[in-house]
Every structure is written in C-alpha cells, then in structure tokens.
Amino acid sequence: MLVLIGVLLVVLGFALRLNPLVVVTVAGIVTGFLGHLSVTAILNAFGNGFASSRSVTLFVLVLPVIGLIERFGLQEQGRRLIARLDGLTTGRLLVIYQFIRQVSSALGLASINGPAALVRPLIYPMAEGAAERRFGRALPEPMREKVKAFSASADTVGQFFGEDIFVAIGSILLITGFVDTTYHLKLDALDVALWAIPTAICAYVIHGTRLYLLDRRLGRMAEAAGLSGRTDRAEAREAGR
C-alpha cells in the first residue's frame, strides 16, 4: 500500500497548485524509493522515460513558423476572414471544427498536433475574432480565457472520440494485443473500432451542444461586463434571420 503515497503526493500537489513539473518529479522519486528501486534504477527510469517519450514534444518544431506568421498578422487576418462570414459565431465555428477534427481522426489523422498546428494559428484567432465582432475588440480577459479554453476542448474532445473509430490507432491495438495474448481471444480490431461509434456520437452531441451554448454564455459574460449594448443589437439581428 505504501507505493500509493506517490499517487497521493500528485493529487495533493495539484490540489495545492504547486508547480506540476516539480510535483511529478518528487512523486516519481518518492514512488521509486517506496518501491525499493535503487538510486541508479530511479535515475535510469527518468532517463529512459524522457528518451522514449520525446515524440510528445516534437510539436516545438512548428513554433518558429507559427511565431513568424503571427508577427506578420496571421491572427489579425483570421479576424478579418471571420468578419466576412457573417453567420459564423464563436460557438458555431467550434461546433464545425470539432466535427472536422472528429471525422479526420476517425479516418486516421488523429496525430496531427491539433493545439500547435491548428488551434493556436487558425481556430483560436477565428473564434476570438467572431467574439470580437459581436462584443467589440476590447474583450474582457475572462471572455478571452473562455474562448481559449473551449477552442482547446473542441480539439481534444474531437480527437479522443474520433480516433478510436480508426482501426490502426494505439488504443485499439492495445485492446486487441492485450486481451488476445492474456485471454487467448481472437478479437477483430475492426469490431472493436465499430463499437466506438455510439460513444463518438454521444461525445459530439454533448460537447457540440455545450459549444453551441457558448455563444449565450459569452453574451451573459459581456452583459455582466457592461458590453450589453452591442449584444442586444447582435442578438436581435440574429433572431430576425
């Protein structure tokens, strides 16, 4: 039972909002000692863990080009583009993006790094641009944060509940690999993948609805922040359509 102290440390550390990197490092060292690993074994585990997981950090390669085009007005252009697409609100844009992300993940394209390659340069500026068109350019910080959070969530939910429909994805291969060797079953990967479809539909309906309702939520936030004049006009215009 003592080894579970490592888990407890992580939970406590996150709850107390200590720096996650430090919390995780300390928890790893403590767990190693409680599991009777030697100092060399623990250092080896840190080294091997780092070396074998470098793929998650490879998104850094796209930062120079994204930084460069941002300097030359990428986000501004995103705003201008969205300004021309009149009916596209923040919520509706994200509902469409989640659909694209989910379907493309189901077709095997889940591992395109969404947050770095798509959300930061393209989706977020457009989502924010749509909000600025409705509420004015001086968006209060909490509204910007809300748009950012939901832009990231549309990407993550779309990826998670799309990728499992694709047969050659890690989680499907883990399921068939694990149960076939452990329990001598012969599971068909395609069969497992097809059973992911009902949950995928539920995920799209649930999160899609919340993304759709984001427009109302932003409207309420704007009202509370005293930006209500523009909201009423924008909403009246929408209602009249």
Partner: peptide, 13 residues
C-alpha cells in the same frame, strides 16, 4: 515527458 516517466515508475513500483 516527465509524466510518461512517472507512469513507468508507478508501474515498476
């Protein structure tokens, strides 16, 4: 990457 390491340590321990 640090979390991947922690996961491996959890398993090893």
């Amino acid at each position: 990457q640090m979390l991947a390491t922690l996961g491996q340590l959890f398993v090893a321990a």
